[in-house]
Design a protein around this nucleic acid. Sequence first.
RNA 1: GCCGGUGUGGCGAAAUUGGCAGACGCACAAGACUUAAAAUCUUGCGAGGGUUAAACCUCAUGUCGGUUCGAGUCCGACCACCGGUACCA
Length: 893
Amino acid sequence: MRKQYPFDIIEPKRQRIWDETAAFKAWNPGETIPKNHPFAERHGLAGEVAASQLPPKYYILDMFPYPSGSGLHVGHPEGYTATDILARYKRSRGFNVLHPMGWDAFGLPAEQYAIKTGQHPRVTTEANISNFKRQIKSLGFSYDWSREVDTTDSDYFCWTQWIFLKLYHSWFNQETNKAESIETLTIPSGLETEEARTSYKDERRLAFVAEAPVNWCPELGTVLANEEVVDGKSEVGGFPVVRKPMRQWMLRITAFAGKLLDGLDEIEWSDSLKEMQRNWIGKSEGAEVHFQVADAQEVITVFTTRPDTLFGATYMVLAPEHALVDQLVTEEQKDAVEEYRTFSSRKSDLERTELAKEKTGIFIGAYAINPVNKERIPIWIADYVLSTYGTGAIMAVPAHDSRDLEFAEKFNLPVLKVVKAPEGQDSIGFVGEGVSVNSDFLNDLPTCEAKPKMIDWLSEKKAGSRRTNFKLRDWLFSRQRFWGEPFPILWKDGQHRAVGAHELPVTPPDLKDFKPTSDGEPPLARAAEWANLKDGSIRETNTMPQWAGSCWYYLRYLDASNKGMFCGKEAEAYWMGSADETANPGVDLYVGGTEHAVLHLLYARFWHKVLYDLELVSTTEPFFKLVNQGIILGEDGQKMSKSRGNVVNPDEIVSAYGADAFRLYEMFMGPLEMSKPWNTKGVEGVYRFLGRVWRMIVNEESEVAFDQALAVDAQKDEANLSKLTLNSTIKFDIEPTPDQLKSLHACIKKVTEDLDGMRFNTAISAMMVFVNEAVNWKVRPAECMRTFLTLLQPFAPHLAEELHGMLQEENAGVIAYQPWPVFDPALLIEESVEMPVQVNGKLRDRLKVSRDADRQSIEKLVLASEKIKANIEGKSIKKLIVVPGKLVNIVVK
RNA sequence: GCCGGUGUGGCGAAAUUGGCAGACGCACAAGACUUAAAAUCUUGCGAGGGUUAAACCUCAUGUCGGUUCGAGUCCGACCACCGGUACCA
């Protein structure tokens, strides 16, 4: 395929100029702007600027990538292109745009590569970052590279550790509903010993140590958070995960469950994403009910969302791991119960989910008393009751819960109907809302009234209370890995204490062997000198999970080189919008894939809310608006993967068609949020379009001279571009015709509206429509061409800027800072409009009608039409509908 | 099962408040230019019928039904696919 235009010369040239002039640097309050910077020229600012002088902020953020060894695939730049187009658009509209990029570079692949080859993860990571950066830069994104962050850089993770210490030194005060310094925690006077007081404190910190059943992945040699386990396998690598009790660092995210849920109402995220977070947090409202154990002191507390069905509770079930089982089991059932517990504990999570859900369980010999009717009901254990949810015990109401019913049928337990289903439905097995029956004081009440009445009754009798439960678990925060942030924690005599903030960062030791030790200690334990301090303290040898660095990187961008703080207060207030009432609170737009819907996005919101409570940030939510890009499938419509051999490498596309064509195609494929298949033929289509734009402005004969000059120049010097001259149709000092203005302004209108609505594909088609018309113009006013290039600039910045330079008759300037064109509605008004005419809703004719024709004259015109006459002949007109400017419909019979 | 999303030509898609279904692009076909090819330009292109050619007619937005002068768009039921989630009491 013949080259449409010399993108291979233009693109490196424009990128070089952007780099040299720091064209896309975003300015913080208090910074000194050189007066020749295009931002200074556009806004008439120079020198040191105060926040009040700066234009409104627009913070547009990409999810920063993990720099993998395989480099960028075409899915990454989809989101990056969308944000870059908007960043350029907003700059043109006069905003101070913050558009940064960085690297989420701690992670498993570099460490596993290190274990295999002995190459230090630092080396691997640096090589991968430089490859990613080269690829991203080749696409001409307008990032402010002076703010680049790397989570593995000690200047960065120093502050990750610092924030961890903030969590460590805080507790959640239920009364103020806020995270507060641990110093505000009142220690009960009853605690006599120093140990007791310390552990009282330690148990309440937001970062705490807990002995808990964790997800252990033997293959990876580490524990995983619940969020990282998918179908009983590790999210990374798909290795089996088993449950195992271990002592680990946890973060008290559950304290923020309510805030994390309520905060979703303040932000503009898609419904599906909010739903995913809501489901993960899993709020359910109901009651706690206390059951006295028959002939014993113990009380079993259950959680239920249906207290109204308490009269129908015919047995109880405890999780096999429930703490009371040992005390309650009767002598004759002991062996059988023990056998069942072994049986269920041996089941891995994988087996539990894979096995057909045949209910199993065993009676433990004891009975409980149903508080409402004093009935003795048997107590069973079964693994369909989870120790990790609610109280680990349930009251079983088989008539109105499908799992309880299945269990009751298998083990012949009584089933008692207490809710009457609506007409036509079977009450047994009915789980919806109905009317209470067989329930004494609840009889005849609808479910919605029976619930609160039962809760009142229980509270009065001290047999229960209202209760809200969350599915969300505390965040398991430690990993047995090398390539992560070390914890700023020291241990001595079984007690932990924080490293002082002034001693940060705690950098990892130098290792040659990155495997865990033979006795199962994390790899950091291999560095005896590093781990054992002179005073006898031992460093924590766990590291933080990969999510730690991504929990706050969007804040570091605001003030990336600040040595004294994680982020300066003034910068934070300006960019996060709290300094300006009209600004969006938080990141204005955050774009990334759905794979982070619960993990990263929940964790980052949690950290942000802690920082907010501690008055370190000024907004309650980090990301105001969030959009998920859809995935790009291979040409075969399948997910791209190496094994299918359908992966498209952006490098190949860029070298064949150029970055501008690549960007344009990524956006032209379809709506950003949809998943859609790649088609390289489609790249050729937009590439041809860019070629038409080029030829619309450049003299084709001068291209021959240019090509010849280039052919003999081994350096392929960009200076050869000076051989190019303007197309002879380009005229300066000429008024555009009304038709030309109409085409141009229709294009301005459509592109502007589509950019505001993030409809990039239709914006591009509007520009194609304009160019298809403009290539037929005999005379092309330079002014029209310049305006069009301003519209094209966000999408195809290299080409637009180069051509714009030619039209300026000087090769200077960054059109990214040109004011965005304003469309004039007056130019779009048509003298006459073509109105479709329908008979009984079927199109029969089109008539030219003057713009301001009234109803009567339109009717007259319509009835005079031969085609219409033929269609209504012999029928009577029932109705004649005229929608001015739209259409006419005649109803006949 | 539950939650969310999506179904429109051969393909990617468009139709922003209910108002001309298929813009724009790909693929394909024919023609022009060329010794030839590539590139470029022009024309055609939902299906079926009809005509020398047109005109014109019928059908068509996953399926079935409804509301309306008028439905891709609104309502009801269903089907398929994609994503999330799952013994959550």
